[in-house]
């Protein structure tokens, strides 16, 4: 009981700290200096209609690189941790005919939607991370519909490594041909709103999407309890 009261006091203290910070919060009337620079000059510099994409890929491109490498580390640590142990053999049950047929019908549509999301990342809401998550969900549906077949993990490994290498190579190309690492003005920035515009951003997002999709799928497939894939 005393323990719980202590915890309650701790949480209440933290809540009071939050309250003092937020009680007098008033939203600013206008954007701060960096954001207004992004909104004003960033449009002509980067040429992406979606400003979030411009910030994620170009202005804060190094953050994205770090994030992608964190995901890669997570996936590899998971594989290291979970595959080594020999799990008990579980007989897998076959899924029903309806699910198999429907998944054959749905997988191409979901894959196409994922690709649409990350190719149009500089125009509409969306981008590499969302598209990668959608691709991963399509692949997980494929696994759930045919649990006995298993997934060939080497394809994901190869896709992931190639996309990562291409991402960094494009960044280095930015140093050589344009202003700095991951600068998007390697190829001319088109007019805002076209599909082929915003310099190199769509190409970077394609590779980010493929990398994130492969990584998320390998995270999920490492967590599942299929004895067949542990051997490989």
């Amino acid at each position: 009981m005393i323990k719980k009261l202590t915890f309650l006091a701790l949480i209440a203290g933290f809540g009071y700290m939050l309250w003092t910070g937020l009680a007098k919060y008033n939203a600013a009337e206008s954007l701060n200096r960096i954001s207004s620079y992004y909104a004003q000059d960033g449009l002509e510099e980067v040429g992406a209609a979606n400003l979030v994409t411009a910030v994620v890929v170009t202005y804060r491109g190094l953050d994205t690189l770090g994030e992608v490498s964190i995901l890669f580390l997570t996936a590899s640590i998971l594989g290291f941790f979970l595959v080594s142990g020999k799990g008990p053999k579980i007989p897998l049950q076959d899924s029903s005919e309806i699910l198999k047929t429907a998944s054959k019908l749905l997988e191409p549509i979901i894959l196409l939607f994922g690709i649409y999301v990350f190719i149009n990342g500089h125009l509409t809401p969306g981008g590499g991370f969302q598209g990668g998550a959608i691709l991963a969900s399509a692949l997980i549906l494929a696994y759930l519909a045919n649990p006995k077949e298993g997934i060939n993990k080497s394809i994901f490994r190869i896709t992931e490594s190639i996309s990562g290498v291409v991402f960094i190579l494009i960044g280095i190309l930015g140093i050589v041909l344009a202003g700095g690492f991951l600068d998007n003005r390697i190829i001319p920035v088109g007019s805002i709103g076209d599909l082929i515009s915003a310099g190199i951003i769509p190409i970077i997002y394609i590779f980010v999407g493929m990398k994130v999709g492969a990584e998320l799928t390998s995270i999920v497939t490492n967590l599942k309890h299929s004895p067949k894939n542990n051997v490989e």
């Binding site: 994409t53 999301v117 969302q130 998550a133 959608i134 969900s137 997980i140």
Partner: peptide, 19 residues
């Protein structure tokens, strides 16, 4: 914030529940 909403719906309520 439609970008963030898409990401949260796909990852937070889709993939993390599966994991």
């Amino acid at each position: 914030a439609p970008d963030v909403a898409m990401t949260e719906a796909a990852i937070g309520s889709g993939l993390s529940v599966i994991i």
